[in-house]
Design a protein around this nucleic acid. Sequence first.
DNA 1: CTCCCGATAT
DNA 2: ATATCAGGAG
Length: 220
Amino acid sequence: MVSKKKAMEFIDTIDLMFPDAECELHANNPFELTIAVLLSAQCTDALVNKVTPNLFNKYKTPEDYLSVELEELQQDIRSIGLYRNKAKNIQKLSQILIDQYNGQIPSLRDELVKLPGVGRKTANVVTSVAFNEPQIAVDTHVERVSKRLGICRYKDDVLTVEKTLQKVIPVERWSKTHHQLIFFGRYHCLARNPKCRECPLLNDCREGQKRLRKGLVKID
DNA sequence: CTCCCGATAT
DNA sequence: ATATCAGGAG
């Protein structure tokens, strides 16, 4: 594990690389954001954004999602993948919002995670982006880059990764840094072919040094 | 742990 | 052909 000081150097460099990082899912209110994040499981943001314009035009309220047959909603989100689970969860979630939350998305993380299809990561995104609460949502990118850089260990589970990042990063930077780690993972430290050769963190990166030794990083 | 799953990049 | 994508539930 790298020191807290070294971790902050990583964070500050990534801050310079992606100063404008933010949520890339298109949504105009907490309800739309929750649906969008739920749909984004194991699927790219870009693909979700191709579906949501028509989806949000057709379904504006929880009642709207319950007004059609399950099969129709499945077809409307089919291209996203995992569409049977997601369609079912959207309808169950809609019924719960009507029954228990006056049709509104709750703003507390502990309430959000009770909704079907909403786990800790989705709840953290909603509270952070829609309700402006400091959070670090650990998705596939945040987990991968944190482990590669040595901010946490490869064996750590996502909750440990989240707690470690919270310890290292000042709370006022949680939400911004969280998005910057996603951008760093999505556009630079790619899962399959990380751009180590052009990475400003290569000298201090545990995974980058390992890849250098293995000859996976080509040097001119 | 497995299952859910289509679209896209490599 | 295969790995990967803002995961969650059983």
